[in-house]
Each structure stands twice: as structure tokens, then as C-alpha cells.
Design a protein around this nucleic acid. Sequence first.
RNA 1: GCCCCGAUAGUGUAGCGGCCUAUCAUACAGGCCUGUCGAGCCUGUGACACGGGUUCAAAUCCCGUUCGGGGCGCCA
Length: 428
Amino acid sequence: MSSISIEDLGSLKGGESVVIYGWAQEIKILKNITFIVLRDYSGTCQVTIKGNPELIEKASKLSRESVLKISGTFKKDAISKSAPEVTCSDLTLLNASATPLPVGITDPVEVDFETRFNNRVLDLRKPKNNIIFASKSKILWGIRKLMEEEGFIEVQTPKIVSSATEGGAEVFRVKYHEKDAFLNQSPQLYKEMLISAGIPKVFEVGPAFRAEEHNTNRHLNEFTSIDIEMAFSDDDKAMQMLELSVYQGLTELMDTMGKELEQYGYRIVVPKRPFPRMTYQDGIRILEENGISFNFGDDFSSEQLKIIGSKMDGFYFITGWPEKVRPFYTMQKEDDPSLTKSFDLQYKELEVTSGAQRVHNPEALIKRLKEKGLNPENFEYYISAFRYGMPPHAGWGLGLERLTQIALGIHNIRDVTLFPRDRTRVSP
RNA sequence: GCCCCGAUAGUGUAGCGGCCUAUCAUACAGGCCUGUCGAGCCUGUGACACGGGUUCAAAUCCCGUUCGGGGCGCCA
């Protein structure tokens, strides 16, 4: 007989023989009756064992979180208050769990962050935690569907590279046979090269590595970057595409999982379009109105972004960043080269996406590299892609973990990462 | 890289110089209980991160080490 998921028990009439697989979440032993709360990915049910001393004996020896196969009969008018009920006719222990559990799945005690992540698989068995990853998957699916509709090609670019991408951020060094190499901090240079390769719309979902020794609720040393690049495009078109991506991702999540998420206490944020836009100078003005003096050309500190973000409802763009704080491949404004055709997508004080129209002229690119103190020789493989007909282009990189954090209102980015890589953690 | 803070049973905590043979909850082990559902009741096992110092006396105070948390910078 084939098995049924616990969720699907609800569609039965009652009286059917069923086989269910799952984990023994709770085992309650009374004198003449034993209850097992069985959990699978879809939910929990109560397995009732009575009038069968052999089975009761067997069940009384089980440990919590052991993996079981249960054969029994589905009871429509269950006595159980909390879950669908199955009367057990046979029970097979597929794999016993050791005791005591390092992290109880249902114990009414708090667990420290470190303990949780040292025992992450058990931590992830908690529905409230594993639903985060179903959500992340849905958001990404919504964005992928949009990309498909818009004619983007999904690509995979190298993660082991010969030069640091943008000069600024720290990179991880790796041994590459007899050479030194780095883990890519962004697919930026490669996706631009693909524009020159004649692919007009590329997107990539992949890991990005940053060796910064940061210790915050919004940084990881390895995160998932959703990157796009579009030929014959500009910053404005890139922003429109970004707005649509965020909207579609969160709408997909809301439509498919909204109710379920609510049961676990997650309040989903579906943004209103269009997202408001402000310029870098607007930001400075807000700060000055709040009595903060600010030097043109500096980046906003997180404290300053909190002030700016508090004036804005939900997602908003900050456009026209100064050349000084943007990477070399960012195009300057024709009428004011101290500013760039760039943008960030913000949610309150959190930066979700960074993007821009890019430099497409090879001489201009070399000049910008030098101005940023980088050696163009190290970027020859990249610059050569610009020499033989590089279209004007624009794009962005969006942090999937940050977007998921915002969608579900989760404070710490590590909670939306299965096995986070942070300042101190490389295992599990 | 800088600045704070923390480390007590499997888990989470109380204790902050002598009343500590270390509290409580939960978990775990055993027992009682004819349907539980945060079950209940009884019994039991189980811990002061490591090294040095101060003191008649250290879980408690000081220094160092290790591990971790938060914030800043940087960014997605």
C-alpha cells in the first residue's frame, strides 16, 4: 500500500487503511493506551494505540524523533483535540533517535543561537523554521517566472576567479593548482561579459563570497545573489525590472503561502507599486532637516539610513549616488560626473539591491579603474570584452536572504540561511 | 579592524565572597495513572568553559586563554 502525507489525511472519508511515515514528535504513555504525535513535512497527526499489548510495549520503548512507519485506520470523528487521528494496527521503527535530544523540537524552553545552529537539522525540523525555506523558494520561483516571461537567460558564471571584483570588499583567497585565485564576491564582471557575448538579458542565482569580518544581523560571508544584466538598457529600465521582480517574488509568496505563514506568526509584506524614489541629495536633505550635518560624497551610515528609512514606507529607491562611493564599472552622469546613474533599493535602513547603468566604453573603463587605484592589467580578460562592440547595459544584484528577511520580518539573516557562513561559523 | 557583553546539568536559567553537598523549569531514566493533547503525580540521574591570581574562604572578585553574542565600519 502506498503511503499518504499527514496533510492529505484531511481529504479522506474515515475508515480507510493508511500508511504514514514520519518522526515521533511526542510519545505519551498511559496505562492502557499510548499516543504518538507523528510529524511529517506537511503536519502532525495523532497515532492511537490501544487494545494491543504488544504494540503498546513496542511504542513505550520509542524515543522522540525516531523515524516510524505507521499502518492504521484513519478516524474521521477523532477524539484528539489537536490533530487528525489514526488508530494504529502496526508500527515499524525505521530508525531510532538517540536521547536526549540536543535541541527539543517541541520543548517549552528557549534555545541559544549557538546551540540551534550547532544542531541545525533538528532546529530546522521545527515547522516555524523550515517554512522559511519553503518561502525563500517561493520568492525565488516568482522571480524566476518573471525572468522567463521577460526573456532572460539563466546563466552560471565561475565562482573561482583570478581577480577581486570591485577592489573594495575583502575576498577569500584559494589555492588553484599552482596559482592563487579568489572566490568571487559578485558575478558582476562575468554577466557584463555575457552582454558582449550577445546575450541581451542574463540572470544568475548563485553564491557570492565576501571575506569581511562583519558581525551583524544582515551580513553573511556567503550569500545568495540574484543578478541581472540587460543590454541596450539604462538605470531607469533596470529599476523598473527590479521593482517588478521584488513585487512578483513577494506576490508569489503571498498567493501560495500567505495563510499558512500567518498561522506561524509571519506577517508578509507585499509592496505597493511604484516604489518611491529619492535622490542621494534628497537623503542629505532629510538628514539636514534632522539636524545632521553631512559631507557630500560620503556614504550614509546605518544610523543615517535609519533616519531616512523612517520617513519612507516600505521599499524605496535611492538614486544618483556620488561617483566616490560606487565601483569603477558604474556610469557617471553626463551632466555631472561627480554623480552616477546608480541606485539602491532600500527597505527601511536595509539595503536590498544595488544597481546601475554600467560603463561600456573601454577607454572610460580603464580610466575609471585607474582612478579607483586598480591595475587594468589584472582586468584584461574583462576589458577585452569591451573592445569589440559592447552594448550599453545596466543591471543589479539583489540579496535573496535580505529579501526573505524583509518578506517574513526576520531580524537575523542567519535564520533565513540553511547553514550560514558568518565571522566564526564554517560548520555545519 | 574597532567598541561593548556573555559562558552554571542534554536544553534554558537562579545564584554575584561563607547560608552552594548549587535553584527552578524542561529533557532523560524508572514507577503510578482506561484517551492524552503544554497531560498529571512520585522517584532518580545530571552542571559552575580552561589556566593563573587575590582571600581564612571563589560559581561569585582580578588577569589571561578559548568559544560565543550584540553594535559599528563595509556591503547584498
